[in-house]
């Protein structure tokens, strides 16, 4: 038990060390004045914060909508729409993330809220699909036993279906989380900030130290958040 938490803390510490240490080192040792300008500490912190906020807002809303919609289309009354919804979700998934951003920029203009909105739509799909899959793969015998014993539909959902579908649902949330961290690097194209700004600057001024910094921060953030979600999932099931 204690051993488990020691291991988890070490892992989180390593990921945090990469997320903080790598930009720190580059800020302290810029190759030239251009890199130094691109890596002003207050800007790096700002972009990191933007990225976290983009991710946080998008994953929270996407989870709420995705889980609710997934449950809804798994109900017997609505199951006939499920194939349509799941297929639309699958097709939606094939649109590249930059395309999703572009579509919403066309509709809503530039800015932070557009980016959040696009990321939410992008993130709903895996959560919705997994929630639906998790709900319909529960053995019918289990549902029938709970109905036969007199459980209310609400009790069955809360005590039986959701706990049994939880591992599949959280797998969807984690997939979505990693996708959102990645896609959020594109938010800079619609002036919504985020770690993508460092990468794009690095590319335009041709300084690899810059875009490596942005890329490593985004990647380590994705892994770190995924790991934290995994811990939450494990604890929820225990």
């Amino acid at each position: 038990m204690r051993n488990k938490w020691v291991k988890r803390s070490i892992y989180i510490a390593i990921l945090l060390a990469i997320f903080v240490g790598y930009p720190w080192y580059n800020i302290a040792n810029p190759a030239d004045a251009t890199v130094a300008r691109g890596l002003m500490p207050e800007n790096v912190i700002k972009y990191g914060q933007d990225h976290l906020v983009l991710w946080g807002a998008a994953i929270l809303v996407a989870t709420a909508i995705g889980v609710a919609a997934g449950i809804l289309i798994s109900r017997p009354q609505f199951r006939f729409v499920a194939p349509v919804v799941v297929n639309i979700a699958n097709i939606g998934q094939t649109v590249p993330s930059i395309g999703v951003l572009a579509i919403f920029m066309g509709l809503l203009g530039m800015g932070f809220s557009t980016a959040v909105f696009a990321l939410i739509v992008y993130g709903i799909l895996p959560i919705l699909r997994n929630t639906y899959a998790g709900m319909i793969t529960i053995s019918p015998g289990i549902i029938e036993a709970s109905r036969g014993m007199g459980m209310t539909p609400y009790s069955i959902l809360r005590r039986i279906e959701l706990p049994l579908a939880l591992p599949v649902i959280t797998a969807g949330i984690r997939t979505s989380s990693v996708m959102i961290v990645g896609a959020a690097t594109l938010a800079t194209f619609i002036a919504a900030g985020g770690l993508g700004a460092i990468i794009v600057t690095g590319l335009s001024v041709m300084r690899d130290q810059l875009f490596y910094t942005g890329a490593v921060m985004a990647a380590s953030l994705a892994i770190l958040l995924d790991y934290i979600l995994w811990i939450i999932e494990e604890e929820a099931q225990a």
């Binding site: 015998g141 289990i142 029938e144 036969g148």
Partner: peptide, 13 residues
């Protein structure tokens, strides 16, 4: 009404 079905009816979680 008590209800017993084959063993699949137990809640595994």
């Amino acid at each position: 009404i008590g209800y017993v079905i084959q063993e699949i009816g137990l809640f595994p979680h």
